[in-house]
């Protein structure tokens, strides 16, 4: 469904610009959950924005259903690193904003939005303004906004980064539950290795400067997933391999 073929991205600037990504190749099947981990600044957000069609690649090709991505498309939705809510619109209008903007809002849109907000624990906050919500609540609104578009490709850029540890675990399981009920490919950027292993079918580990795919780890854990699996050998093995890929050269240099 998503295919990246030797994708490179260089941002123009002084001294030849910044090379954010080099020779990134990746395939994501329909309905697959892929996590991306890597050091800060290794091009994870850039990778998502390429798939979203927000920036064009400088080299290689980004394909969606075998068609080159040339701009933002209706079947992809993105959860940004920051909540990016409209400060003047209440929660409900924020959640329905993309559909209204794309003239895809129907009579059932508002009810579905209320339902999603309820699953995110935001019942009763429909008519609050963003500035009246905590950072974590704002991010949950942003997640609801993306899910309401019923995307076939959901791009999530550290969606739980602003949440406290407890809400984070709760939201992870909630996301898995919603994902399992739909045919939706997810590209999920995170800084948390356990989170990546818990959620994903495969974990893409990126190396920094310029960003490349260091390796792709298959997570063989059965679904439905839960925190009790964290103690299992498979889980520990995957987490250890990812850690070795990220810190590997630094540790060997120290030795």
């Amino acid at each position: 469904m998503i295919r990246l073929e030797r994708v490179g991205k260089t941002f123009p600037g002084r001294e030849g610009g910044v090379e954010a990504l080099r020779e990134v190749s990746l395939r994501v099947a329909p309905g697959e959950f892929v996590a991306i981990v890597g050091a800060s600044g290794c091009g994870k957000s850039t990778l998502l924005r390429l798939v979203a069609g927000l920036v064009p690649p400088s080299a290689g090709r980004v394909l969606l259903d075998s068609v080159p991505v040339e701009g933002p498309r209706a079947e992809t939705a993105m959860v940004f690193q920051a909540p990016t809510l409209l400060p003047w619109a209440d929660v409900l209008r924020n959640v329905t904003f993309p559909l209204r903007l794309m003239k895809r809002a129907g009579p059932a849109t508002e009810d579905r939005a209320r339902g999603l907000l309820a699953t995110a624990g935001l019942s009763g906050f429909e008519h609050r303004l963003p500035r009246e919500l905590s950072g974590g609540m704002q991010q949950r609104v942003a997640i609801c906004r993306a899910l309401l578009q019923e995307p076939r490709v959901l791009l999530m850029d550290e969606p739980f980064g602003a949440l406290d540890a407890l809400t984070r675990e709760e939201m992870s399981l909630e996301l898995l539950r919603i994902w399992q009920g739909r045919q939706m490919a997810v590209l999920f950027v995170t800084h948390s290795i356990p989170e990546a292993v818990l959620l994903a079918d495969r974990v893409v580990v990126m190396s920094p400067r310029p960003g490349r795919v260091a390796d792709i780890i298959e997570v063989g854990l059965p679904r439905p997933r839960g925190f009790e699996q964290e103690g299992s050998d498979t889980f520990q093995h995957c987490a250890r391999r990812i850690r070795a890929l990220i810190y590997g050269d630094r540790l060997s240099r120290a030795a």
Binding site: A52, T76, A82, M102
Partner: peptide
């Protein structure tokens, strides 16, 4: 904020929509 502009672009808003639905309300 550039993030709001990017949100508009991700929702395939044209320049006119961006002005009327994002920039202008923000400028109120």
């Amino acid at each position: 904020p550039p993030e709001l502009i990017e949100l508009g672009r991700a929702c395939r808003a044209g320049r006119m929509q961006e002005l009327l639905r994002i920039r202008l309300p923000f400028a109120i």
